[in-house]
Amino acid sequence: MSSSWRGVFAAATTQFNKDQSLNLKSTLAHVDVMIDAGLHGLIMLGTVGENYSLEQPEKLEVLRATVDHVAGRVPVLTGVAEYTTKLACRYAADAKAIGVDGLMVLPPMVYKTAPRETIAHFRTVASATDLPIMVYNNPVTYGVDLTPEMFQELADQPTLVAIKESSENVRRITDLKNACGDRYTLLAGVDDLVLESLMLGAEGWVSGLVNAFPAENRLLWDLAEAGRWDEALEVYRWYMPLLHLDTFPKLVQYIKLAVQECGYGSEMVRAPRLTLEGEERERILAIIRKGIADRPRIPATA
């Protein structure tokens, strides 16, 4: 099984009303903004989509509405972030029935699996579905690291087609290439390491800040894709203070505040997360507003 997952994929937000109930209308309007700006795919219900803050019926409601609304314009993937392997397999089956194009599978939540357990989890989920799978490797957040050697061991699972590499160790791109060749499609998963990752061989970018700056994400991607590195670097340096917001424990609050400031949705999050207040909110707002004020001009042919 091969993957055509290249380009900019949005780790999309899930929009909520003030009472923290789902706001599907706003979620889908935001999806349209990003598709219209030229992103190449959507990942619903990842970390930024607050997967594990939603109940199971709500997750399926979001997926059903998104798949129907997008109607094949771009691939729609869903995060698979469950407490047990069995629950992950069940969710994968439910997502396939709804019509998603693929899965982004995380390690089990809460329990930090040892390498043998991690491999068993991904093998079991991969064997339970014929949907293509992007493996999300984020040891910084989730405490489980899939090493290049582990990906070598998993290479015989045909449904495992891509890796979202979020270890914050950009050396991993080269190590994965050396260990696995072109077996997997590699996607940068840390916003403020994206240009380095693309230069080293990543073929895509799963982004959080694309929720607020979709045209600028696409501009940076296009410049890098064309090998226009000096121009890409200029955009990257403007973007970097904003991209750093993707690397903090409160990345969801920071990104949603940027989305609100850019006029694409609400900063509302679901508890236990709370919206920002006080000095922290003013500090993050200053970064966002400076980025908006100084944003690069988007060429008509970018």
Score class of each variant (00 low, 15 high):
156 D>I: 05
156 D>E: 09
157 Q>C: 11
159 T>I: 03
161 V>A: 03
163 I>K: 09
164 K>S: 10
165 E>Y: 05
165 E>M: 00
166 S>E: 05
166 S>Q: 06
167 S>L: 01
167 S>G: 11
167 S>R: 08
168 E>A: 12
169 N>W: 07
171 R>K: 13
175 D>L: 13
175 D>W: 12
181 G>S: 06
182 D>V: 12
183 R>S: 08
183 R>H: 12
185 T>L: 09
185 T>I: 07
186 L>K: 05
189 G>D: 02
194 V>P: 03
194 V>S: 07
194 V>R: 03
195 L>S: 05
197 S>W: 04
200 L>D: 01
200 L>Y: 09
201 G>P: 13
201 G>W: 13
201 G>L: 11
202 A>I: 01
203 E>T: 00
203 E>I: 02
204 G>Q: 10
204 G>A: 09
205 W>Y: 02
206 V>M: 09
209 L>W: 11
212 A>W: 13
213 F>P: 06
213 F>T: 15
216 E>T: 11
218 R>S: 01
219 L>C: 00
219 L>W: 09
222 D>H: 08
222 D>K: 14
223 L>W: 09
223 L>F: 10
225 E>G: 06
225 E>P: 07
225 E>K: 15
225 E>I: 08
226 A>D: 13
227 G>P: 14
228 R>Q: 13
228 R>V: 01
230 D>C: 06
230 D>L: 04
232 A>C: 01
233 L>C: 09
234 E>C: 02
237 R>C: 04
238 W>F: 10
239 Y>N: 07
239 Y>D: 04
240 M>A: 06
240 M>T: 10
241 P>F: 04
241 P>W: 03
242 L>A: 11
243 L>V: 11
243 L>Q: 15
243 L>C: 14
244 H>D: 14
245 L>M: 14
245 L>K: 11
246 D>N: 11
246 D>P: 05
247 T>S: 14
248 F>I: 04
250 K>W: 01
253 Q>Y: 00
255 I>L: 13
256 K>D: 02
256 K>Q: 03
256 K>V: 02
258 A>L: 04
260 Q>S: 08
264 Y>M: 12
264 Y>Q: 09
266 S>N: 14
267 E>T: 01
269 V>F: 11
269 V>S: 06
270 R>H: 01
273 R>L: 15
274 L>S: 04
